[in-house]
Nucleic acid binder design. Structure first.
Length: 622
DNA sequence: AAAAAAT
């Protein structure tokens, strides 16, 4: 039994140029409450050790100091002065708050700090992005942020945040959502999806004010009645969306709140009770709050699923169905449902239709896809060589630049092992995964973002949506089993039109992904290493392909659904229980109608402005 | 198989 075969040992490889350097100068190891290095490991491999923690202080919501509004109930009277930057809706009119330059510095950053820079988008790299929108009556895209259709106060906030031009997905999502349509939007990682739903939703909320019911109830002492609900698959992503929303609700009547697990329940309930018009949440905690009667969804006008394919996969689907179908949210035809993701497998699109009403399918960028801004390298590394190879790569990175490196592994245990290993080899690394406490997770993320610990070892918890500026390298130490997961992971770099590098360790254990990987690399104009092709062939078609070419095209256009009659949905894979009661068969619901239906897609090319209708069959770019 | 998400 050689030890090499069991698990990584903490060998003492020290790159020559690093000899004598102490890890993380000037910063403390992760568990700052204890001193020893060993204590960096998390508390609970064996289960959900992290859940029981009552580490207060995480829940967010509301602007001002805690003294604001905590004394009076904020019950709509004029007795309490609203927090800084908090506007009001009075007698059917929007009364924005006065500007507050101090608050603006907090929200939007100042020249030189990281917040300020993070808004910079390299629009040159958005040229020539193919866009496809299908569905009935697709509205024209906008080309600039203008009022109309964007509310003038929101427009000011967008300018303050230095978003100068709409990204491709925003050019389409804004008019689609502003005209009241449902949307399934598929857009490349890092291409502005959050603004894609926040801008139009907030714009409409600013213009229309609270619903009448909301006006009666939204300050009721113990029950929040949000107008918009945004669901996200991880706590950190929910938190990020909430932080982003604060930039745009500035001075408006809208109050935003964020709820998720691992943070103090009471604090979140108190924040909700202060008024909640835009609610950002993860499913578990939201369910909990719904069951305890702290939130009502009866005023929901906008329902957003971010990372929608993830939200509808097996681990989440039941919780989402409970929230949407078993509580008091209005039915699909009385609300707007907006689904966003970088990938949208066919099966998930089928499921998603239960939540949508006559939606527009929007696809921006190539197939479910990786941008060419990311240089992808696949290298052959046997499992036992992974650690030393990683050290070599990190050492080389350190020589050449100062960006952040995100290392993905498959298991929580490996995340800890590897981060400890790196740390003991003088690389300032930390880890993030679901068995760590929320405090540890947020600390690790903050240390990473700030560059004080520029190497983060992560599980799938960090794969989606997180927008971390300056991640220059994503390393798939373990490749995921699913190509879509790979797409999301490497999308943590190369964001906002910038460039990045993604390296993956591949060996025969990853043969199942080889075929999809080759397709993806080919589409993104990346080099396909020879060993990859031969292993793919060697294992006969390289394992099951989910058919990436379906990864982001509208299932309604795949041929089986084109009939103008009611009879031929034909496809047997379709027979889930919702089939009979949803909108397929009726003539108003979209499928059976004769008004052109879903074969009539529109394809656009933003750079050349060829906004002409075209037949869907002739120019498939996917 | 694993990860995530409520206590």
């Amino acid at each position: 039994m050689s030890e090499e075969n069991t698990k990584p040992q903490t060998r003492s490889y020290v790159p020559p140029h690093k000899k004598g350097i102490k890890p993380v100068p000037g910063s403390t190891p992760l568990s700052s409450e204890s001193s020893g290095y060993e204590s960096r490991s998390n508390s609970g491999y064996g289960g959900y050790g992290g859940y029981g923690r009552r580490d207060g202080g995480y829940s967010s919501g509301g602007y001002g100091r805690s003294s604001y509004g905590s004394r009076n109930n904020n019950n709509g009277g004029n007795s309490s002065r609203p927090p800084r930057g908090q506007g009001r809706w009075v007698d059917g009119k929007h009364v924005p708050a006065a500007r507050d330059t101090t608050l603006e510095k907090t929200l939007y950053g100042e020249e030189g700090d990281s917040k300020f820079q993070s808004s910079g988008i390299n629009f040159d790299n958005y040229d020539d992005i193919p866009v496809d929108a299908s569905g009935d009556d697709v509205p024209e895209a906008i080309t600039e942020f203008t009022s109309p259709p964007i509310d003038s106060l929101l427009l000011e906030n967008i300018k303050l945040a230095r978003f100068t031009r709409p990204t491709p997905v925003q050019k389409y999502s804004i008019p689609i959502i502003s005209t009241g349509r449902d949307l399934m939007a598929c857009a490349q990682t890092g291409s502005g999806k959050t603004g894609g739903f926040l801008f139009p939703v907030l714009s409409e909320m600013f213009k229309n004010g609270p619903s009448e019911v909301t006006e009666d109830n939204r300050f009721s002492k113990n029950k929040a009645h949000p107008t918009a609900l945004v669901l996200a698959p991880t706590r950190e992503l929910a938190s990020q969306i909430y932080d982003e929303s604060k930039k745009f609700i500035y001075r408006s009547w809208v109050k935003a709140t964020c709820v998720y697990g691992g943070a103090d329940f009471t604090t979140q309930v108190r924040n909700l009770a202060r008024g909640c018009d835009l609610l950002v949440a993860t499913p578990g905690r939201l369910n909990d709050l719904l069951e305890r009667g702290k939130i009502s969804l009866k005023n929901i006008k906008y329902f957003v699923l971010d990372e929608a394919d993830r939200m509808l996969d097996m681990g989440f689907e039941n919780q989402i169905r409970y929230i949407v179908e078993q509580c008091d949210m209005p039915p699909a035809n009385e609300r707007q449902s907006l689904l966003f993701s970088a990938t949208f497998p066919k099966e998930i699109q089928h499921l998603a239709r239960d939540f949508l009403n006559d939606y527009i399918f929007l696809s921006v960028g190539k197939v479910g896809s990786t941008s060419e801004n990311i240089t992808q390298k696949i290298i052959y590394v046997e499992n036992e060589d992974k650690e030393s190879t990683l050290l070599d790569i990190l050492a080389a990175d350190e020589e050449s630049g100062n960006g952040l490196t995100l290392v993905f592994v498959e298991t929580k245990r490996m995340a800890d092992i590897l981060s400890d290993y790196l740390y003991s080899n003088n690389f300032p690394a930390n880890s993030i995964h679901g068995d760590r406490t929320q405090r540890e997770r947020e600390k690790a993320l903050e240390m990473f973002k700030s560059g004080r610990e520029p190497i983060l070892v992560a599980t799938a918890v960090a794969a989606r949506g997180l927008d971390i500026p300056n991640v220059t390298h994503v390393i798939n130490f373990d490749l995921p089993g699913d190509i879509d997961d790979y797409v999301h992971r490497i999308g943590r770099t190369g964001r906002a039109g910038n460039t990045g590098v993604a390296t993956a360790f591949f060996n025969r254990g990853n043969k199942n992904i080889s075929k999809d990987l080759i397709e993806l690399l080919t589409e993104a104009n990346q080099e396909v290493p020879q060993f990859l092709s031969s292993i793919s062939r060697e294992f006969g078609r390289g394992g099951p392909s989910r058919g990436r070419s379906g990864g982001s095209r509208d299932i309604r256009r795949s041929g089986n659904y084109r009939s103008s009659g009611n009879s031929s949905y034909g496809n047997s894979s379709y027979g889930n229980s919702s089939y009979g009661n949803s909108s397929y068969g009726n003539s108003s619901g979209g499928y059976g109608n004769s008004s052109g239906g879903y074969g009539s897609g529109r394809q656009f090319n933003l750079s050349s402005n060829t906004n002409s209708n075209s037949s869907s069959s002739s120019s498939q770019w996917w």
